[in-house]
């Protein structure tokens, strides 16, 4: 369905079916698909882990587990937003990336300043160090990608 000849990053490579204005590739093309892959990865990882923790031992560390659950939901919604592209999808992805950024910075700082609040790790603890700091980089990449594919006609 895509044509492999044209590079999606090129200035004149408006993808077929793309929903943004001329020049910018849609969020679900090219590098965007790689971003979606990483988001899906984190969605799966966070959902499977948080889901089990919430289901089996929520009382042990409710804040940590519910936060992990929230992170999981946000990763899923962000991936869907990026994959859907379009105005609504972009807005969804934008909100998710901002929440993620605030979340990873806030929880990261809190987990260092007040470790007692988090008896068990969350995805965002210590700025995502348990996940190779990817939780910290991901929202930044997401915002950068949204910026790069922004609708220039507006």
């Amino acid at each position: 369905m895509a044509d492999p000849v044209r590079s999606p990053g090129g200035p004149a490579a408006t993808p077929p079916g793309g929903t943004t204005a001329e020049g910018a590739p849609a969020t679900n093309r090219g590098p965007g698909r790689l971003l979606i892959a990483v988001y899906l990865l984190f969605a799966i990882a966070a959902t499977s882990r948080a889901g089990l923790q919430i289901a089996t031992r929520l009382a042990e560390a409710p804040v940590a587990y519910l936060l992990s659950g929230l992170a999981a939901v946000i990763y899923i919604v962000a991936a869907v937003g990026l994959a859907r592209a379009g105005t609504g999808g972009r807005r969804t992805a934008l909100v998710c990336c901002l929440v993620e950024l605030v979340g990873v910075l806030g929880v990261g700082a809190l987990s260092l300043a007040r470790p007692a609040l988090f008896p068990d790790e969350t995805v965002w603890s210590e700025f995502g160090s348990g996940y190779g700091y990817i939780p910290l980089v991901l929202p930044v990449l997401g915002l950068a990608w949204l910026w790069r594919t922004r609708d220039r006609a507006v």
Partner: peptide, 21 residues
């Protein structure tokens, strides 16, 4: 996940997805 996304993206970025995963 890598296979599905790589098939959807028959460009260099498809290979990048496989590499990342």
């Amino acid at each position: 996940l890598a296979a599905v996304l790589a098939r959807m993206e028959p460009t260099r970025w498809g290979s990048a997805i496989v590499c990342a995963i």
